Computed example of a mutant assay.
Amino acid sequence: MRLLTGFRGAGPGAGYRGGVIAICAVLLCCVEVTPAPSQSPPPVVLDRGEPITPIPSAPALDPLKVALGEKLFSDRRISHDNSRSCQYCHDVATNGASQKRHDVGLDGSDLALNSLTVFNSTLSFRFSWEGKFRTIEADINASLESPHTMGSSAVEIAAKLDADLDMRGRFMAAYGRRPEGDDVVDALASFQRTLLTPGSRFDRWLQGDDAALSPDERDGYRLFKSLGCSACHQGVNVGGNLFERHGIFHPLASPEPKILRVPSLRNVATTAPYFHDGSAPTLDDAVRKMAMAQLNATLTDQQARSLVAFLGSLTGTYRGAPVGGSP
Rank of each mutant, 00 (worst) to 15 (best):
L260K: 11
E244N: 14
P257T: 05
R261P: 12
N237V: 12
L265R: 13
E244Y: 14
R201T: 05
D209Y: 03
P251W: 02
G199C: 05
A280K: 13
R266Y: 11
Q207L: 02
H233I: 02
I259W: 14
F249Q: 09
G208H: 13
A211Q: 12
T271Q: 15
A211L: 07
Y221G: 01
N267K: 06
P215M: 00
I248M: 15
G228K: 06
G278T: 05
H250W: 14
S230A: 15
P257V: 06
F275I: 03
H246N: 12
Y221C: 01
T194S: 11
Q207A: 07
P263L: 07
I248N: 15
V262E: 12
F243T: 00
D277I: 00
D216C: 01
S200A: 09
H246V: 10
K225H: 09
A253W: 12
Q207G: 09
G220D: 05
D203N: 06
V238R: 10
P215I: 03
L252K: 07
F202N: 00
F224K: 02
G208L: 06
N237E: 09
N267I: 04
T270R: 15
D219R: 15
H250L: 14
Q207S: 10
K225A: 05
S190K: 08
L242S: 13
G228P: 02
T197I: 04
A212V: 00
D203H: 06
S214H: 00
E244H: 10
L213I: 07
R218N: 07
Q207W: 01
V262M: 14
S190P: 10
R222T: 01
S279I: 04
L196P: 02
R204G: 02
S226I: 00
T271W: 11
A231Y: 04
E217V: 07
A211H: 09
P257R: 10
P255F: 13
D210F: 08
R193F: 02
P251L: 00
L206P: 01
G239W: 06
F191D: 02
R266V: 10
R193L: 06
D209W: 07
R204F: 03
Y274S: 01
L252F: 14
S214K: 01
D209I: 08
L252T: 00
G235M: 09
D210G: 08
P251E: 09
Q234Y: 14
C232N: 11
F243K: 07
S200L: 03
C229Q: 07
L242Q: 15
G240S: 09
F202V: 05
T271L: 15
D277G: 12
D210I: 08
A272S: 15
Y274A: 07
R266E: 08
R218H: 08
N267T: 04
I259L: 15
W205C: 04
S279M: 12
W205R: 03
C232Q: 07
G240A: 09
E256D: 15
L260C: 08
C232K: 08
H233E: 07
S254R: 15
F249M: 11
L206F: 08
S230D: 11
S226W: 10
S190H: 14
K225I: 11
T271M: 15
G239L: 02
S190E: 07
